[in-house]
C-alpha cells in the first residue's frame, strides 16, 4: 500500500507546478490550464485525505469542485474570447488598461 503522505506530496508538487505556470506564462489560455492543474492537485488531496479518514465527504467536495471548474472554464474562456476580439491577442501583458 502507498502511504497517504505520498499522495499529498504529489498534490503539493502538482499545485506548485500549476502556480509556476500561472506566474511565468503570458498566454491566457495556458494560464487557465495551469489553474485547472491547481484545481486538480487540490482534488487529489481531497480524495487522499478522505480516504485516510475513511469518509466519502472528500469525494463530494471533489464533485462540487469539478462542477465549479466547468463553470469557471466556460466563463473564463468566454471572457478570453471577448478580450481577444478587442485586442487580437491573448498575451496577458497587453491587457494593461486598468494598471496604475
Amino acid at each position: 500500500m502507498t502511504p497517504i503522505n505520498y499522495y499529498l506530496g504529489l498534490g503539493a508538487l502538482l499545485f506548485a507546478i500549476g502556480t509556476v505556470g500561472v506566474l511565468i506564462r503570458r498566454n491566457l489560455i495556458v494560464v487557465f490550464m495551469s489553474i485547472e492543474l491547481m484545481l486538480n492537485a487540490v482534488n487529489l488531496t481531497f480524495i487522499a485525505l478522505g480516504r485516510a479518514m475513511g469518509s466519502a465527504d472528500g469525494q463530494v467536495i471533489v464533485f462540487f469542485v469539478m462542477i465549479v471548474a466547468g463553470v469557471e472554464a466556460a466563463v473564463g474562456l468566454g471572457i478570453i474570447l471577448a478580450a481577444f476580439r478587442n485586442r487580437l491577442t491573448v498575451n496577458a501583458d497587453e491587457f494593461n488598461l486598468l494598471r496604475w
Binding site: 502507498t2 499522495y7 504529489l10 485547472e36 486538480n40 482534488n43 487529489l44 480524495i47 487522499a48 478522505g50 480516504r51 469525494q59 471533489v62 464533485f63 469539478m66 462542477i67 471548474a69 466547468g70
Partner: peptide
C-alpha cells in the same frame, strides 16, 4: 487513475468524463 487507486472509483471516472 490515482483517484481510482484511492478507492474513489466513481469520482475518478467522473473526473475523466467531466474534465
Amino acid at each position: 487513475a490515482l483517484m481510482i487507486g484511492l478507492d474513489a472509483l466513481a469520482v475518478g471516472l467522473l473526473q475523466a468524463i467531466v474534465y
